[in-house]
Design a binder for these strands. Structure first.
Lengths: 194, 194
DNA sequence: AAAGTTACATACTTATTGGTATGCCGCAAG
DNA sequence: CTTGCGGCATACCAATAAGTATGTAACTTT
């Protein structure tokens, strides 16, 4: 049953999101599901491979999904961009902010010490960037945005600010502070309208 | 000799900055200095206490120092703010960006799993925020900045974007990408001038 | 129905790794 | 000059945690 594999994957993702990769004890996580080490190592050769699978199968689709609407927009680019930012604020709970951005967490912790994580996480980040960049470019062409900014740079700026708001929100354990970062970004993004 | 203690502190700070706290082996780090475990545990009761000392004695002064000029400015607020941002770009090497922001790294990794780190790192973040906020307020009063923005929110925004640029720079291992985030922030910050 | 394979469970192993116990040396106070 | 203490070095310890070896029930294939 692939069901067991997915349960292992998902529950470990949750644990890693909260406490980080290294301090997560995979056997204890699966034990809570009534599953043993045997099942874990049946599906994943090593703990790192579990981590890779989480990035590939959970993080990657999750994060690229956020920006797909903006990337593929054919009209109302500005509205969709602003709505996407608003979603960050509305969909997240207090706890979500305290746990931080799963992608950011994993990057900070694992990218420097493992090339497998590094490559995968970079891919996800660049994929998000590409989506934002595309949306900005299309919006410029469609006349939704001003054309006096560089979409590549602006996309990195937007991405950086979101990730940074998560960082600061996590550090202070405050959703309100997270929101301040995002709200200011939203105000700024409105000035990109034409 | 307090010299030994400081050497232990500094070398471990460097190692932790690069590979993170948990994966740093303190005994191996000090061994490179020709120092043994005995000396380490003579000065620090536990590994966590070393981490706390690093935050208190290295990170805290380092990061608050960055913003002290802006906080205490009596004139030219806008110029000093912009210069502070420029310093981030000019003073950092390619490697620095790859290693990421030491404060951010430690926060992401350790804040969720240890209350001692959490409290200390939060303090440093809020201290930086306070400096930026003060500078913005003073600049508004002095007529250097527009008054139609909220200094508290704006300070969190600036802080978030810087931290986020580090995150994205680290994830992509690219100083150029880090710079794009900061350069866009710089452009934005210029619009705050009155 | 025999043989093989999948999907696990249980028990064990082994390499860290943070931390401790102890000892020694030099120096300063009494 | 001897006693005590700060400043280490060395050797040892115990817990953990990733990973392995083995077993076995169910299911598939031939």
């Amino acid at each position: 049953m692939e069901d067991t594999r997915y349960k292992i994957l998902l529950e470990n993702f949750r644990a890693i999101h909260r406490q980080g990769f290294q301090s997560t004890r995979t056997d204890k996580v699966v034990a809570e599901l009534g599953i043993t080490k045997g099942a874990f190592y049946h599906y994943f050769p090593t703990k790192n491979d579990l981590g890779y699978a989480i990035v590939d199968e959970i993080l990657c689709p999750m994060y690229t999904g956020i920006w797909v609407a903006f990337e593929q927009a054919e009209s109302n680019h500005a509205v969709i961009l602003e709505d996407t930012l608003k979603k960050y604020v509305h969909l997240l709970t207090d706890q979500d902010v305290q746990y931080g951005c799963a992608l950011n967490n994993l990057t900070q912790e694992m990218a420097p010490i493992d090339a497998g994580f590094q490559a995968r996480l970079k891919k996800v980040i660049l994929s998000m960037h590409r989506s934002i960049e595309e949306g900005l470019k299309n919006g410029q062409i469609a006349g939704a945005f001003r054309t006096d900014f560089n979409p590549t740079q602006m996309a990195f700026f937007i991405l950086s600010t979101i990730e940074g708001a998560f960082s600061v929100g996590k550090a202070t354990r405050s959703k309100v502070i997270f929101e301040m970062g995002l709200m200011q970004l939203l105000e700024f993004v409105k000035t990109l309208r034409r």
